[in-house]
Design a protein around this nucleic acid. Sequence first.
RNA 1: GGACCCGUAGCCUAGCCUGGACAAGGCGGCAGGCUUCUAACCUGCAGAUCCGGGGUUCGAAUCCCCGCGGGUCCGCCA
Length: 597
Amino acid sequence: MESLRSKPSKLRSETEIFNEVESKAIDLFAKASGLDVKTVLNIVKKRSEQQDKQGLDYDLAFPCFQLATKKKLDAKTLAVQIAKKINNEIKNSKELSRMFSKLEAVNGYVNFYYNWNWLASIVLKSLQKEFALKPSKDLLYIVEFSSPNTNKPLHIGHVRNDCIGESIARIIKHQGFKVLKFNLINDRGIHICKAMLAYKLFGNNQTPEKANKKPDKFVGDFYVLFNKKAKQNPMLEQEAAKLLQLWESNHEETIKLWKKLREWSLQGLFQTYKDYNVSFDVIEFESEIYSKGKQLVLEGLEKGLFFKDDQGAIVVEFENLPRKVLLRSDGTSIYITQDLGLAVYRKQKYNFDYMIYVVASEQNLHFKQLFAILKKLGFEWADRLKHLSYGMVLLEHGKMKSREGQVIEADEFLQQMQHLTFKELKKRCQSINDEKAMLEKAKAIALAAIKFFMLKHAPRKDFVFKPEQSITFEGETGPYVQYTIARINSLLKKAESQGVTMPKQFLFKNFNDKELSIVKNLYSFNFVIEQAFKELDPSKVCKHLIKICQDFNSFYQTIPILKDVNNREKRLAIAKAVRTALSYGLYLLNIPVLEEM
RNA sequence: GGACCCGUAGCCUAGCCUGGACAAGGCGGCAGGCUUCUAACCUGCAGAUCCGGGGUUCGAAUCCCCGCGGGUCCGCCA
């Protein structure tokens, strides 16, 4: 390893420097404790977000308990001994003294403290303009999400799905990978025919324009109407089944009707996507791909991987999963047949390296079976398929029932939130000169509130959605992050108007605790994003943004920035770096950034 | 009946995969703070049998086992 002085520090990257400091600490501990580096790497604890309020502000901690037990010593005593050795070495080396500010033994741990007076400027400098992307790697990820039906509008369950899908795609991109966002639209099947039938019987050739309804809502209302009517007249269920047969046999009039409703539905759905700023690279329609996979199943049957049961259906059995029918006895395909075919088709067409399905946890078993079947068929890449399973969005009375119209629709929800935000804006701002701009702003804030709420829970968790209580603007919320950025903007504007400029040499000193806490969290943001990627969990990003905001706001409110002439450049550099990190964080969550609030 | 997920202050959550130092944050409550860089903010206080019981370990919210409570799934539906 090259010594620090062999190259001037400004030519080396932030990562290189930190890596060197870290590995130096590990070497030092290994040498002093007599453990090998591999063991030390296993026990070392890195600074985590939770510790700083506990007065534990170490950067690296080495617990000595295991070694103490082995040596039949008291861990506290051992830690003190080891710390003493290392301290001596640091004292005698200029290079080490530059890296570490403190080293102490506490409660059986040896804690290393980095010399942040040196490192902080490095972190701040790298964040003055923009958040650095990781070098690009030639790996393709497919992220499939949303997957709406064309018989009803999107509801808040879809909103959660879209938020997760859109955000995880961005988080993956940040790692340097290529990403394609897929939307598989369910535009066929009995439920679609139900809406069609209701329109046929009770629609009177109405159109969304004439009815003055958003077109997907217009279609969705017929679906609800069908279910209402079918309760009184069960014959309608059979009629719908007949309609499905007609559709499958390409019956001209039926196809015409289907196309009409489908078009309306799609128009409406994509308007909603636009409102939520959700977009896709590839749109697929089930009507075009639903028969894929049959061949695959037949091949599997031939190879003896599947078998025909006594009723003639093709079935697969697993060691530790329930059996699954793959092809009906009449030879028609079902959901899993389609998914099998689609996975293979996508692999052939796009040659992805990884594919992620963002689908609710109800389908956990389905995806386990799907992946296992692909593996049985000999597709090794099945190991690189992942189901990003997320919990349900429940209402206070329980599950949403779209059949009965018991849902919170995405459009209505956003509208209400925007309305609420608009009222709030009016309260806070006396001069309403531009109502249109204010409505835009209200929408941006409403979106922040909604999306942040949807993303701040770990995906695996169910949550009960209570409109008034769930979406707020204070505390751990999207608007709080937006507000922090807006505050910084205004601060920087003022600094500019006062003619404060940044020094050419980016070397600041004498950081106080609040300043350092911010810098450390800025530094660890990249690791947090990496963790969010590994765990497919955007909530990690949310939590970290909140932490940065809390630190910054506490700093902002208790420490003068512009007035303290000796420190203001440093503090403005911190503010700027925070803005860079927060803005990028909001980008990762697909939340709009506001210049001012 | 079987499989998977969840159970952490009045409420909502993080931490659990990879065991470690007094269990972290928000809401709500209480007490404060705007002639000073945006109060959608900040400061302080109160509030926890980490569902229960065993086990493993120097050490368990975290790992293992047995329970309890809640959810989801176990269709020739999608």
